[in-house]
Design a binder for these strands. Structure first.
Lengths: 275, 275
DNA sequence: CGTCAAGAGGTGTCTATACAAGTTACCGTT
DNA sequence: AACGGTAACTTGTATAGACACCTCTTGACG
């Protein structure tokens, strides 16, 4: 393990770090991050059982041969993630928690499907360059009639219709789609590969009745309830890039929000369990 | 302001804190928390303009007469909330961000209604002590047939039906409701007042078709889409306390999830805007 | 006029120390 | 046996100093 490299206290600060630009291995991560990763591993592996107090800070300092600073920084990391609770006087207690789904998993249907162990699929209904509707223009911050690219896809989970996606991209982003077959894979990954600055997404969730096109493609009746997620994706500078309207079959996907009184929030999108 | 109390460097650690048990004023908060609050105030008030670098750590140390530790701890707090971005070499930059809705606002219909400037109301359909159904027992971790308290309330926003709430409490918590008129105010606040350890809530969101009782009370047609939020509230020890099924009129409320590539997540519940 | 090098100043990281405040266990007294 | 106080240990908080690495400016040199 990484800390077993012999490090005498005298060498620690004077050790040459000059080569750190050449090789960027995990050995070069700051100490507190390595400690944090190790602690997390111990919690996940059950080496530090859930509900039991973890070793005291001074024990950890002794074990890894560091001062309290890095150890406390590492513990603070876990505490932030909710993996560690308690304090002041008594040693904190480990708790395994469901990690919040990362940005990509939450944004990309393809990535999401894979994380829940399903095979994603899609059939493109249309890709079109047209002028922005007043509503889309307003949400994207464009002038009415500005060129946009609209993409309508039926998304499948294990070849069963699960969601109907209607995306409107600003032209600068959307034109990438004309060089790309949206049936083959993840639009999201392709945009990232082309270095589109997807940075923030705002999801607004409500319920709507299936309209004729929804009903036909999702194979339900007109008026059946659908779970709608409207998504506005913006760049790190706050420029809107995509405005989407995703309609899920409620039997196929649910969204979860978990929050605690301390302010920790975990979000997820899951396949609806049959119950 | 708090730091203008004259504190000579020599006095700082030897200053008597013995009275801190008697009076628990904001003056007694740890230094880094006071600093964090002050920094946040400066960002919100525009004293530290958005997008502009904030003063350097050494300047802040000089201003408040502290060492770097508390200053860095305070900045880390803001960084965690996303109010501060950047670093390493150049001073970090302030950014105003929408705060995530606190736990109480997200859990309590009454608190939520007030934060959006509406008047909450409710009419209780029934409060009953009965035996747990198999589904509720499973979710609450009880034996089938264990006693529970069921509460069904129609929730109003400005006297208009907005949501139908069906809650199942474990008996230990639910019996409090028999001493309380659920028409008068917030059950949630009452439970907190009685020191019930409401700590975590897991919300699962999907869409359902209105059933006959839903339709009658919410004044819609059978089969109309409703936004359903199933909520499992647990104590800090993980003991399930409440299992609820809330059905919103989609025209009255939406949920939002905002997340960024860095992992910051902000959740909210909002009144549906008429558009 | 462009380019590169040096330097100044910034944050990130780590060490060492000290004390305050909460928790727990133990032990003596009642 | 029940109670209460103390002592040891724990985490929380704060200080001080050191160095690595990054960024930006400045100035000398070609």
């Amino acid at each position: 393990m990484f800390w077993e490299t012999t490090r005498s206290s005298a060498l620690r600060s004077s050790a040459p770090r000059c080569h750190s630009r050449l090789v960027k291995t995990s050995e070069d991560l700051p100490l507190h991050q390595r400690l944090g990763a190790e602690f997390q591993r111990r919690i996940e592996s059950g080496e530090w059982p859930e509900g039991r107090p973890v070793p005291s800070e001074s024990q950890l300092c002794a074990e890894f041969g560091t001062s309290r600073g890095p150890v406390r920084q590492a513990l603070a990391l876990l505490r932030n993630e909710g993996s560690l609770v308690g304090g002041r006087g008594k040693p904190p207690v480990a708790r395994r928690t469901a990690p919040s789904q990362p940005f990509g998993t939450f944004l990309s249907f393809t990535q999401w499907a894979r994380t829940i162990g399903r095979e994603p699929g899609q059939s493109t209904v249309e890709v079109a360059r047209r002028r922005a509707s007043p509503e889309a223009a307003a949400r994207l911050g464009l002038a009415e009639g500005a060129p946009v690219v609209e993409l309508v896809r039926l998304r499948l989970l294990d070849d069963v219709p699960a969601m109907l996606e209607r995306s409107t991209f600003i032209h600068e982003v959307g034109r990438i789609l004309f060089d790309f077959d949206p049936d083959t894979g993840s639009v999201y990954q392709e945009l990232l590969r082309r270095e589109v600055d997807l940075h923030r997404a705002r999801h607004t969730i409500d319920a709507v009745a299936a309209e004729p096109q929804d009903a036909e493609l999702l194979r339900v009746s007109v008026g059946d309830p659908l779970l709608r997620v409207r998504r506005l994706t913006t760049s790190s500078q706050g420029v809107p890039l995509e405005d989407a309207d995703d309609r899920y079959l409620p039997a196929m996907a649910t969204f979860t929000i978990e929050n605690t009184i301390e302010g920790r929030t975990v979000i997820g999108r899951y396949r609806t369990e049959e119950d």
